[in-house]
Simulated assay, not measured.
Amino acid sequence: MSGRITATLGAILGVVGLVAIAVPQITTPLPAGDGIVVAVGAVLVLGAAGQIQRRRATEPEYAETPDAELAVDLPTPGDDLDRRLNRLALTRFSEAERHRLRKEVGEIAVATLQRRERCSADEAEQALAEGTWTDDPFAAAFFTGRAPEASATDRVRELLHRESPFKRRGIRAIAEIERLLGDEDD
């Protein structure tokens, strides 16, 4: 309630002040001695101190702005292939899935070899089937289906690893294809 009274009184005094500026003769009957000026000044200082104290005791309020843009989760390229390779650990003997994965990665490898070596698709497929497309025996074994031509300790280490040999060979084949693509860009 006191806020309304203060606002109303301030509005009335503001209007009277504006009128007094436009028509100064209406203020001549008002007392203008030193005592009145000191009293008005004291009231103004007390009012200002009261407002400052009220502001200090009030919690600041902040505007809540909405998020300009919501984050969107986009899939990472290759996540599907990783998920499928990881699923092979659960179903170790899924020959159909292994065949599909080998075919999909093989198509990418053939296209990469065609661009990099400037050879035909048949020549690239033959290089994959023979394992001559890379120096990595485990990557080559992914497409040949034969045991890698590596040292016995490396083959035993692969068999004792907790991931399946097919998955590890697939990962090495994909890494080798990526390396060939990287060499091609250079």
Rank of each mutant, 00 (worst) to 15 (best):
P29Q: 08
R169D: 03
P137Q: 04
P137S: 04
G14E: 08
E158D: 06
R115L: 00
V43G: 08
A32K: 08
A150M: 06
P77Q: 07
T91F: 10
L159V: 15
G50F: 10
R116D: 15
D80N: 13
E176R: 04
A11I: 12
L90Q: 09
Q51N: 04
L101H: 07
K103Q: 07
S120G: 09
A173I: 02
S120P: 04
R98A: 00
R55F: 05
E149D: 12
T58P: 02
E95I: 02
P165C: 00
L159Q: 14
G17Y: 02
D154I: 11
G10H: 03
A141R: 01
G50P: 03
L128H: 00
V37Q: 12
G14Q: 09
L180V: 10
E64Y: 05
I5G: 07
I12A: 04
D183V: 13
L18S: 01
L181N: 11
D122K: 15
R157K: 04
L81A: 14
A96R: 14
D135H: 00
P31V: 14
A173D: 02
R146H: 13
A109Y: 06
L18G: 07
D185L: 11
V40A: 12
V19A: 13
E130W: 01
S151Q: 04
A57M: 13
L30V: 04
E95N: 09
L18M: 06
R168M: 07
H161Y: 08
R172W: 13
E61C: 11
R157Q: 06
R56H: 02
L90M: 06
A49S: 13
G41L: 02
R87M: 02
T132N: 03
T144P: 04
A124K: 13
L128V: 06
F143W: 02
E123F: 02
L128K: 07
Q114K: 15
G182T: 09
R172H: 15
D186F: 03
E69A: 09
A150V: 02
F142Y: 01
N86G: 01
R146G: 00
T58L: 13
G145V: 12
V105Y: 00
T6V: 11
R168L: 14
I5H: 11
T134N: 04
